[in-house]
């Protein structure tokens, strides 16, 4: 894939990239940094992309790693989930109830939810993007859905996560 084609792919995929970043990082400033870094790395490593049809999946995977890097730089991995939500304290409160509920999930859960239900990736693709197994992704989705249901019904509090 040449740089021009990849550039068009990035522009076409920008909404999707933002949603993926926004599922891991609450702050728009962090999302901007992660997307920017992912685009830079994508162009730098473009000739390592063997199959063009996987370009978007490949770029999304780079983005996910960048998002995790930002989380890790801010706090220890163990505190990722708490930290992510804390980052949102300055954010506007006009997000949808469902988005707010998704953001209360653990980071691995909400990433899986967004990639599967909103971005339409297959389980196998998600597993490769998050360096996990198909079985693990299915479990995350099942548990995430259950937790979402409980959140939306008011049956699960933050401290229960």
């Amino acid at each position: 894939m040449n740089k021009e084609a990849f550039g068009k792919l990035v522009i076409d995929a920008q909404e999707s990239l933002y949603r993926v970043a926004k599922s891991i990082l609450y702050s728009d400033e962090d999302c901007k940094d992660a997307i920017s870094e992912a685009i830079t790395k994508g162009f730098e490593k473009l000739d390592t992309l063997k199959k063009d049809k996987f370009a978007k999946t490949w770029l999304t995977r780079i983005l996910i790693n960048e998002c995790y890097d930002i989380l890790r730089e801010s706090k220890n991995v163990e505190d990722i989930d708490a930290h992510t939500y804390e980052l949102g304290y300055e954010e506007p409160d006009n997000y949808s109830e469902l988005y707010e509920a998704i953001m209360k999930l653990e980071v691995d859960y909400r990433t899986a939810i967004v990639l599967y239900y909103i971005e339409g990736y297959k389980i196998k693709e998600i597993a490769s993007m998050v360096d996990s197994t198909e079985s693990a992704v299915k479990k995350r989705l099942a548990r995430a859905r259950e937790k979402l249901r409980l959140y939306l019904e008011g049956g699960l509090k933050d401290e229960d996560r």
Partner: peptide
């Protein structure tokens, strides 16, 4: 779960991209 439930990309991030 729908894309409409997710925030739209802000203009400044679109410009940066």
């Amino acid at each position: 779960i729908d894309k409409k439930d997710y925030p739209k990309i802000p203009d400044d991030i679109r410009d940066v991209i």
